[in-house]
Design a binder for these strands. Structure first.
Length: 422
RNA sequence: GGUGAGGUGGGUGAGUGGCUGAAACCAGCAGUUUGCUAAACUGCCGUACGGGUAACUGUACCGGGGGUUCGAAUCCCCCCCUCACCGCCA
């Protein structure tokens, strides 16, 4: 969430920036500032009142010590009115703060100045394209290939669990492990430290990264213990730093984690969710950075370049998009999407989303660093997929299909131990 | 699942009603001494929200919430969490 200070100090700028995301914030910001004003004045009144009580209490203590019982009794009488007033003010303050907070959490993050205006995916900006689309003589979609080579069994997953929980078999299973290892090795070589976090998180963690309280419907919930299955490694990994004050010298923090991801994701249908295109459980390797605010955009560019190098090594045709205001997530300030071309479906599939959240998540997490002036400041958080497996697999299968089998890209062969899926 | 113990500042850990926002030690920061390193010594060393140009200052916070009291880290109630041992188990 945005900080009150951001809003107060630059309210016109905040309104202008939020308009890029399609949020008309003029009224709510006026309300927020008004609420904050009354919060301040109420607190001042309450503080003064409590100070008076504290003084009286000390006096009473001193009087009792001196044995002046009667005088103490008189002083006690005086505290009654004070206490009553404090109680009222406390209630008022709580109400104001709740109202203020309810308004604050409604505001999305400010988009970066480079974010193009726009409403939907149509308005996203093409940053660059790479690789070349293959010329296929036969064009089987990956769900047919999966069946033909018996590497992914969607029906079996339905039997075991339900739709969206595929079973990978044989070379298909090996390909999964190969991709995971390949991505983690590449990420650690680029300076990211590997972590293996829990796959379930508690409520506090869900709140820290913004899944709760609004988006709980998108997560699987283990009711008996009140845990949530993680929708992405971003949740546990970023929450490592919840309520943490880092030393400036520790920045940037770079972490990578492989985890399965679980998403309930009701809604879509048809070819969008066919095969590997959208699953309830899928594998993903994530990269996370905690960066100094001055250099977080350099860090973002670095992450984009790194993810690009992975897609290149996999020899996949790709493009990088800068998301427009309307297509960005609530929490992001700037997001680059990576899409790979899936040659049989003849469509672009999103495989990575790399974002700078600036201090928006850090403010929720209370993730700070201590700079030279010793004062804790909110850090910037960034994350990106590096990479999500299913759609990479879909594109690999479709783009590399030949009459002899499916060719495995060179970079992966050391990990798969085979050059062809047959 | 059973039984017991406990949650205090970055860490260890004192503190059973006012002198405690909190001892002491460790870590950290700054400095002095020293030929260097090490050691020793001195000082500083929580967070949030207010007020003040600033020095400084008010309030809150000892797992969370409520209560008793003029006054609560300390007493009472509820909740959460952690640890140990036993049982079960990868």
């Amino acid at each position: 969430m945005l900080t009150i200070k951001q809003i107060r100090d630059n309210s016109d700028l905040v309104i202008a920036r939020l308009a890029v995301k399609g949020t008309q914030a003029q009224d709510i910001i006026k309300e927020i500032i008004a609420l904050d004003d009354s919060r301040k004045s109420t607190q001042a009144e309450l503080d003064g009142n409590l100070a008076e009580q504290n003084v009286l209490a000390k006096e009473i203590g001193a009087l009792l010590k001196q044995g002046k019982k009667d005088e103490a009794e008189v002083a006690k009488q005086k505290t009654a009115a004070c206490k009553e007033l404090s109680k009222q003010l406390e209630g008022k303050l709580t109400d104001i703060e709740a109202e203020l907070n309810a308004k604050l959490v409604q505001l999305p993050n400010l988009p970066h100045t480079s974010v193009p205006q726009g409403r939907s995916a149509e308005d996203n900006q093409l940053v660059r394209e790479g690789g070349s689309k293959p010329q296929l003589s036969v064009k089987q979609p990956h769900w047919d290939l999966a069946k033909q080579y018996d590497i992914i069994d969607f029906e079996l997953g339905v039997k075991l669990t339900g739709a969206g929980f595929p079973v990978y078999k044989g070379q298909g299973a090996k390909l999964q492990r190969a991709l995971i290892s390949f991505f983690i090795d590449e990420n650690t070589a680029a300076g990211y430290t590997e972590v293996q976090p829990p796959l379930m998180v508690n409520e506090a963690s869900g709140f820290g990264t913004g899944q709760l309280p609004d988006k709980e419907g998108q997560m699987y919930h283990v009711g008996i213990d009140n845990f949530y299955l993680i929708p992405t490694a971003e949740v546990p990994v970023t929450n490592i730093f919840r309520d943490v004050i880092l030393n400036e010298s520790e920045l940037p923090v770079r972490l990578t984690a492989y985890t399965p991801c679980f998403r309930r994701e009701a809604g879509s249908y048809g070819k969008d969710v066919r095969g590997l295109n959208r699953l309830h459980q899928f594998d993903k390797v994530e990269i996370v950075q905690i960066a100094h605010p001055d250099v977080s955009y350099d860090a973002l560019e670095g992450m984009v370049a790194h993810v690009e190098s992975l897609v290149k090594k996999l020899e996949l045709p790709y493009r990088i998009l800068r998301l427009c205001g309307g297509d960005m997530s609530f929490t992001s300030a700037l997001t680059y999407d990576f899409e790979v071309y899936s040659a049989a479906q003849e469509r672009w599939l999103e495989v990575s989303s790399v974002s700078n959240f600036e201090s928006f998540q850090a403010n929720r997490l209370k993730l700070r660093y201590r700079g030279e002036d010793k004062k804790p400041q909110l850090a910037h958080t960034l994350n990106g997929s590096s990479l999500a497996l299913p759609r990479i697999v879909a594109a690999l299968l479709e783009n590399n299909q030949t009459a002899e089998g499916i060719r495995v890209p060179k970079a992966l062969q050391a990990y798969t131990g085979f050059e062809m899926i047959k």
